[in-house]
Structure formats: C-alpha cells, structure tokens
Design a protein around this nucleic acid. Sequence first.
DNA 1: GAGAAAATTAACAGAAAATTAACATAATAG
DNA 2: CTATTATGTTAATTTTCTGTTAATTTTCTC
Lengths: 221, 221
Amino acid sequence: MAQILIIEDEKSIQRMIEYDLKQIGYNVDSELDGFEGYKKASSGKYDVIILDLMLPNMNGMDICKKLRSEEVSSYIIMLTAIDDEYNVVQGFEVGADDYVTKPFSPRELTARIKAGLRGRNVDKKTDVLKYNDITIFQSSYEVVKGKIIVDLTLKEFELLVFLVINKGKVLSREQLLTNLWGFTYDGDSRIVDVHIFKLREKLDPQADYIKTVRGVGYKII
Amino acid sequence: MAQILIIEDEKSIQRMIEYDLKQIGYNVDSELDGFEGYKKASSGKYDVIILDLMLPNMNGMDICKKLRSEEVSSYIIMLTAIDDEYNVVQGFEVGADDYVTKPFSPRELTARIKAGLRGRNVDKKTDVLKYNDITIFQSSYEVVKGKIIVDLTLKEFELLVFLVINKGKVLSREQLLTNLWGFTYDGDSRIVDVHIFKLREKLDPQADYIKTVRGVGYKII
DNA sequence: GAGAAAATTAACAGAAAATTAACATAATAG
DNA sequence: CTATTATGTTAATTTTCTGTTAATTTTCTC
C-alpha cells in the first residue's frame, strides 16, 4: 500500500489526517519537526508527503526545494493557513504538486491524495499480484499458477513481476535491463530474451501470455 | 509545447485564461459547448484540460468520467463556482487531477498547470491517439479499428502515429524518412510508398484515410 | 573448496519485416 | 490526346530480429 508522510506540527491536525489515512489503509508516518521530517522524506520511500509550511527548524518551502533538488519524486501536497496568491505560486515553483489551505475538509484532502497517487501510478505496491490464473506473492517470492507452485529463479521472478506491474505496456530490453539489472549493466541485451524464454516455458508452453513486439520489446497482456 | 484545452462557457473567464496561457507559450484551444469540448478532448492530444462544471449540453463531471473511461490521460483541472466538499470529492472520483474554485487567481491556475505538466511523464500525453474509428495505444503498440485489433509492423505503426500527429499536414517522403528512418538514411524514398500501401491495405481497403498529394507526399485527413 | 544452481554469453536457424526492383496504372503538362 | 512523370502494386531479395539450445562463467550452498 501507499506510503504517506505527514510533516505537521499542529498535533490536532496531524492526528486527524493520520487517522483518516490509516482508515483507508495507507501506511502513514508522522513528523512534528521540520528537519526530522525532511530527513525522513529524503529517503524517497514515500509516495505522498503532506507538508505544512510553518514548521520548527526547517520550513516547508525549504524542505520542498531541497527534496526536489535531490530528485525525490514523491507527490508533495503543501498545507497552510495562509491563503495568499504569492505563497501558492511560490509553493508550486519550489516543486509542490498540490496546495491546500486550512481549514480544509478531510475528505477533500484524501481525494487529492488519491488523485495524486492515481496520476503517478504508485498505488500498485501491493504484495499479492494477480494475473489471469497466476498469483504472485512478492514478499515470499512465490508464484502459483492455478494450484500449482511454479519454481522461478530470482531473475525470472523479477521479470514476471515487472511485466505484470506494467501490464499492457511494451517494455524494451533497455527498460528491462535498467530496471531489473541496474543502470550500470552494459552487457548484451539479449540476456532478456533467454529469461523471457525460460519464463514462457515455465509458465505455460501453450498460452502466450508474454507477447513479443518485434523491434521494440516484450509485454504481458 | 504543451497542448491545452479550455472548456468553459463564461466567455470572460475563458478569454482571460486563454490569454494568460498563450503568453506563456502554450498552444490553447477553447470550446464553449460541453459536448463539442468533450469531442475535442476525446482526441487525447491535450496535455491539460481545464474543465468547467456547468456547461451547456454536457456537464463537466460527465465529460471527465467519459474521458477517463476512454483512457484519455490528459491532466484534468476542474473549475467551478461551487466550493462544496461533495463536489470536490466527486470531481476527484470521476478522475479529475485538480480542482479549483472560482474566483481563482490566474497565477495560481498557471502554477497548477505547470505542476500538472511537471508531475506527469510527458510521454503520457500522447499515449492514446484517436483518429476516426482508429485508436492507437502507443505504450502497448496496439492499434484498434472499431473493435478489431489491427496488426501492424513497427514501421507501419510509426508511420501511422506520425501521420496522425501531423493530421491534415502533407508530409513529404523526405520528412517521413528523416523522422522515421533517421537522417542518415539515404536509400530510395520509394520505401515510403510501400509502407503507405500496406498501411492502407490493413487499415481499410475501402476508405481512403491516407491521401496522396501528387508531387508532394502523403497526409491523413 | 566441491558441487549445484543460476546467470550470462555465444551461436545458429528460422521467421518476420524492411527494402529493392520491376511492372502496372493513374494523373498531368503540353 | 499523347508523352511523361508520379504513384500503386506485387514479387523477390536482403536484412534484421527473435527463439532456442548449448557452453561457459558466476554465484550460492553445504
């Protein structure tokens, strides 16, 4: 599930937001201090960051600017009591994705969070993936087809997961290499083919889940 | 530059927004009527759609819902006079990416547009192209005509995409060669003809989507 | 450190697509 | 109306890409 960080020093507001979001099922972390919040956010692991502007030790604008300079791509929603055009524009300029003024309705905030998550396609961090009669348990690295456990090697498993997450999209060998092997890899891109072959063989010799798009790459449909 | 569509029946507001956005350098189209606006938006060619809620013939909520059901992935900003929690939440539920209530500051709107453009991957904007009864899914490299999937080779696919993006414009063989084959290519420019022929054959032997402009090149209308 | 498993490289055959070439047909200038 | 040129169409050829297998290297396990 989506990871959300709340950086807000007004405890009443922080608790309210946290409660609502946990109800929906998000994983929520909270931080009252600006600098501590920045350090957490800097990890890059959050899908959404709810960021108050006036904070002790480090203010929201600076946090946002710093995070963006570090290429943190979390969806940042700024939160403030000041409804001032200058601030709003500045907020977006330092890299915020949305800007909400207090008082706001909790439902509006959650709606905006959902919209942010939807736009970025990050809500797919679920443990169990399903694709046709195939079920993938990410935490246990198990794949079940029908009722039979399919033995996949690590690379085959990673490849399958990546294909399923990007279901429908054609993925080039380069995309697969950078995402599954790491940028540094500069070997032959034909490795991908071999793993695709083995995956097809293990999943189902008949059905062709995995389609080849000649000249481009592979996709699962 | 980014393509923006404004669907708004209040002329004063529409003009103001259009003026501001053109100043920045965006390509702006405007539509006063709901249904006409929907039809334009449905093309999928806009990066951002600014959508009023109360419109003649088709309301903003319905437009938004319909567009999302058609996989149009433009960044949709809803615009309304009603600052009502229920509406905001509903707006996000039908697929809006942002929601702004009137009166709003023009600078805030442009800031929100920029944030929307920034947040999305630029390649998303043109993922789904539509042309008559043909739908092109660029990320999956699929072409659907009516309800039938048309099997195209890579070159045919690229050619179709390029023609549709430059709909109406006549493209010379040289233009097509440099854009689809790369500058270095110095073979016979008649290759284009063969691919055009095959494309016509596969898309529809009857209808002539692709027009020949003798002495110049080809265009799709 | 030996043995097993997995990952990678290499090689080749077959299939698909791109390109060339050749001829047929249609459009246009004179 | 004819000669010329541009385009349509088909077939043949060449090139490229992928599937597949086997051999080699690396990693892991005991």
